[in-house]
Design a protein around this nucleic acid. Sequence first.
DNA 1: GATGAATGAGGCTTCATTCAT
DNA 2: GATGAATGAAGCCTCATTCAT
Lengths: 207, 207, 207, 207
Amino acid sequence: MDVIEAPRPRRAASGARERSRLATRARLLAGGRALLAEHGLHGVTSHDIARAAGVASGTFYLHFPDKQALFREIVYEAIRQLRERLETAFESDEDIKVAVRAHAEALVAFAEANADLVRIVFGRDHGDVEVEADVLDYLAQVGADVLRRRIARGSIRTFLEPAVAAQALTGMFVRVIAWWIDDGMRTRRDAMIDTLVGIQLKGIYQE
Amino acid sequence: MDVIEAPRPRRAASGARERSRLATRARLLAGGRALLAEHGLHGVTSHDIARAAGVASGTFYLHFPDKQALFREIVYEAIRQLRERLETAFESDEDIKVAVRAHAEALVAFAEANADLVRIVFGRDHGDVEVEADVLDYLAQVGADVLRRRIARGSIRTFLEPAVAAQALTGMFVRVIAWWIDDGMRTRRDAMIDTLVGIQLKGIYQE
Amino acid sequence: MDVIEAPRPRRAASGARERSRLATRARLLAGGRALLAEHGLHGVTSHDIARAAGVASGTFYLHFPDKQALFREIVYEAIRQLRERLETAFESDEDIKVAVRAHAEALVAFAEANADLVRIVFGRDHGDVEVEADVLDYLAQVGADVLRRRIARGSIRTFLEPAVAAQALTGMFVRVIAWWIDDGMRTRRDAMIDTLVGIQLKGIYQE
Amino acid sequence: MDVIEAPRPRRAASGARERSRLATRARLLAGGRALLAEHGLHGVTSHDIARAAGVASGTFYLHFPDKQALFREIVYEAIRQLRERLETAFESDEDIKVAVRAHAEALVAFAEANADLVRIVFGRDHGDVEVEADVLDYLAQVGADVLRRRIARGSIRTFLEPAVAAQALTGMFVRVIAWWIDDGMRTRRDAMIDTLVGIQLKGIYQE
DNA sequence: GATGAATGAGGCTTCATTCAT
DNA sequence: GATGAATGAAGCCTCATTCAT
């Protein structure tokens, strides 16, 4: 979680040099995102990414110490964004029904808008054990936070072990979203959201 | 699913020669299982597996066309076993409460007895995109079958989209079990099972 | 010194397989020796050596963990041989005059017969700091041993600091031999030996 | 020898611009000297040197055509200085005993005051074949000059081949000094000088 | 059937050097 | 003159797979 939260400090300087540098870096990230979404970490070489970004292979290493570093930056950035949106949605209303629905809506909206990121972050063949662990731990942590808050407000079923429930929620979201994206988003949004909301309200919260 | 179900045809002949051959094959599978559980597909070489099995590296290829074939055989065999136990447990009682609990018990018991397989099958860094897809699809399919049967018996909430619910269940089980194993099985069995059962009964079935 | 002395233990087995393996290893050593003598450690790649040995590039790594390992094996083997001959020569006679001359003769004979090894071992651009240190320390050690023995016999000038004298002798031999080989062995053997002997007898020993 | 002697022609102009330029150049030389002494030619990159000098990496190439050029300039400058001091010391007295001792004193004093240069110039892992050759040839040449002069004065033993003796002297000095510096200058100066002087006087000169 | 030495394509990474600003 | 991002050739090493014995 620490790793994910940690916002990398940016050097101040922002002349034309620095702008160009950041543009190259951005191109590497963009190229990496596209390739990684399609082929997974093991299916992509640092040369591939450099080529996709239109730079020489050595340039890659001016911006990232190795392939995993770029991979992690993409994943962590996506996770940070997702978390922010999920939390905002969840806190948008006191009514648990409304909050849970908003949360599910935000999740699906994020997935729709960032299908490639979802494939990388939630996808199969993550390829980086630590990253996968970080991502799932982080998401479970977010889930556990939510549950803890609700427990404090007396709105959670007592037979649930919070740590287990948080993992269950994480698994449910990750799996459903990954499946939906992989499946070409053919299942109706509404039906999917209704199902996610229903399972949560009935299964986790006291309706 | 096809791939997983397909039972490999066995040559009939069973002389001393054949027995020795099968013993070698079994040693490769056992060695592979141990190594793959610990290091993941990418962390293990065909040489490693041969060495662990006490055979020469070329011998590996007399028994498996490539490294993935052995990996898949291990995974698919585990999944077949798991599915059989889960179905048996689930069908053991008409009462949905009893059935769901038996199902969860079977799942946890399997995980306890086959921690290394769980790490390979449900674990992170699967390393083989197709295998991961096969496994999850297969498990979701099993879940969908169950749901369909219950729908036929009128015991499922109508707001649930079966395909989505099946994915959600799969994700929940896979994640919770993988976490439990990785975490050293520190959370109490009972509490975990209660939580898994509770979420299902309330969230998926009409209690 | 330890490193150099250490005789690598050889596996016993010596079937056709093992013989072929050793032949390949020998070809790599021979090819490496020729190339290293000509271009130095930094001027030769592992591919070059493999090509010179007529094997694939990966084969190199079946026999040596890396380029330096082969380099060291060549150097240490040469040094071991040289030391043996020098000691034998030096101990061949009680008369210091005869012993010193025999020693010088042995040194020059070794250099003549192993010009390529001399270029590698004593040569410039050793390229491997540790190897260079090992070699010089080892030779100085051998020199110090000799001096110590002579001191015990009362045949050494008292104003000499043994450690310094040993280094001086080592430097003298290494430099003269390297120069002679590099120079195409144009200076007359006899004159060179006379000079080496003379400096030692007058400068180090009590004539 | 030519290369070493050749004094680089300096542009005349000496405005503020030129002074700043020379300062940058000096910083590169100083930074290079420190780094090269510690890590050897192969252990230092042009970026390292630029960073140590506090300039951009491209700046390096405004002052030196390549990495070796800087290396050589450092080495040759050191050698020129050393030679000057050695010659001055040696010519400071007609008495050969006094001259040889002064020579040895100058050598040791130079080494003490320029340990980093000694490590670069006499050290192992020179890394540049031609530079090493230049340095040793040059030093041997200096030694040969001295011997020639003494021969002319009739003060040299006749059985010595001058070319060989010069190499022997060079090797002796280089080795002893490099060892002394590397060893942390633990051996007493006096004892070392006595030994160097003694070997020369007895071994090379007619006492 | 088993062996294990050999293969060689392929990936990662470094770094001397260039050049637009 | 100084800058520093970019270049890309080159080297090291791994490992899935083959095949002669």
